[in-house]
Design a protein around this nucleic acid. Structure first.
Lengths: 217, 217
DNA sequence: GCCTCCATATTTCCAATGTAAATTTTTCTT
DNA sequence: AAGAAAAATTTACATTGGAAATATGGAGGC
């Protein structure tokens, strides 16, 4: 998937090996503790070997974040397909969003902290758009703000995204936590307001990405 | 305010001087680029001088984050006092939340990234609670989820906090942005749903902080 | 006023990190 | 087979956070 055209050099597929090792180090040690040298050592190459494949540490983290967005999108999509359009599908997608964030907290923080990666990287941007696109698709037709329609066509999308994202962030960082243990996993409907599904507005909104959205490159 | 009892040693008030220098460096260079050495150099002391006042870099960042929470709470409170309880007051507090985040993005990220500071620091926790308390107070009596009342007594608070916090995070990181420039500042009511104010439920909810909330120490 | 004590700050040193440059090794092309 | 190109290593360097030993200067007792 991320493999290069040429097959076997000294290492074989150092690029993907570094990404995988980086992802492992990331969740083991945390975002602030990952280092180029430890990732390289994990793969068994010298600490300057990654330079042939990535633009420094930031470049490697960018590639890792890109993989993160792909998995993020897949995790949302997982629950979506089992439900018809409407509230159930929205819940499924949001629970996927939360599930990914809580199971991959360091990767999630990496994805959404632009100072750690190269935010202008085309592949990263595309993967991010694709991930947002999943959420956007399930929000399509859901109207949260019937009573107050000002604020532009993306208002509901932004509101929904803000809600899920903020909940994920506050949970990851420990700002929101349950007192009692043995509790069930956090789910989106714990804080989700009552949405209405209005098929009559389902076709009225423009696509801000204009077909640029796709998972695979 | 944060000044110590003793007044003038070699430097005078190195502790607060370091915090102020740290806050300046933070917004100038960004969260990932601040260093103990550069902060110490800015004040004009050796790079190990901070060790007498803080537990390493993490300790200094913790003190900076604590100041950040105080300012955050003050910024929210600023708009609150001009409005009566209800939607207007809520909007004012949330706009304060957003304003602070957008004007102090690096400090905001520091506050809400536990891997950068010492999350168990008592002063930090207290300041964080105080900040949340402002938001909680304006949410008191607002009922967002009339139709669906499951999820515990903090459901509306968590929902509101998630919404504001997620919007702030996505704006700071550039995930949400306007296409056209010369645009007005982001405000919360752009994504805020229609709240209802119900004085009849205003006294029913327990205080999870039980009086621990206070701005000044 | 002098002297001791101790908080404060400095100097020195060290390991770890990211990056650059030059060099070596391996693979590909012709 | 030979030269070119790619991949990886070696060496070097500046910066960082932190530890340890040392110096400094004010506070309080006499």
């Amino acid at each position: 998937m991320l493999k290069e055209n040429r097959k076997k050099y000294h290492h074989g597929d150092l690029k993907v090996a570094l990404i995988e090792a980086g992802l492992a180090e990331l969740e083991e040690k945390g975002l602030e503790a990952v280092s180029l040298r430890s990732i390289a050592a994990r793969v068994g190459v010298s600490h300057t070997a990654p330079k042939n494949h990535f633009d420094g540490l930031r470049g490697l983290l960018t590639a890792m974040a890109t993989v993160g967005y792909h998995r993020h999108a897949a995790e949302m999509q997982r629950g979506v397909e089992d439900h018809p359009p409407g509230k159930a599908r929205l819940d499924a997608a949001c629970n996927g969003y939360l599930r990914f964030a809580l199971e991959n907290p360091e990767l999630f923080k990496l994805m959404f902290t632009s100072s750690f990666h190269l935010a202008e990287d085309p592949e990263l941007k595309q993967a991010g758009w694709a991930s947002y696109g999943v959420l956007r698709d399930v929000a399509h037709g859901l109207d949260w703000d019937k009573a107050n329609a000002s604020g532009g066509p993306w208002r509901t999308e932004w509101m929904l995204w803000s809600l899920v994202h903020g909940y994920a962030m506050l949970l990851i960082d420990g700002e929101i936590r349950r007192e009692d243990d043995g509790s069930p996993p956090f789910r989106m409907d714990e804080i989700m307001p009552d949405f209405g599904y209005r098929p009559d507005v389902a076709e009225k909104r423009p696509d801000p990405f204009q077909g640029q959205r796709r998972i695979e490159d």
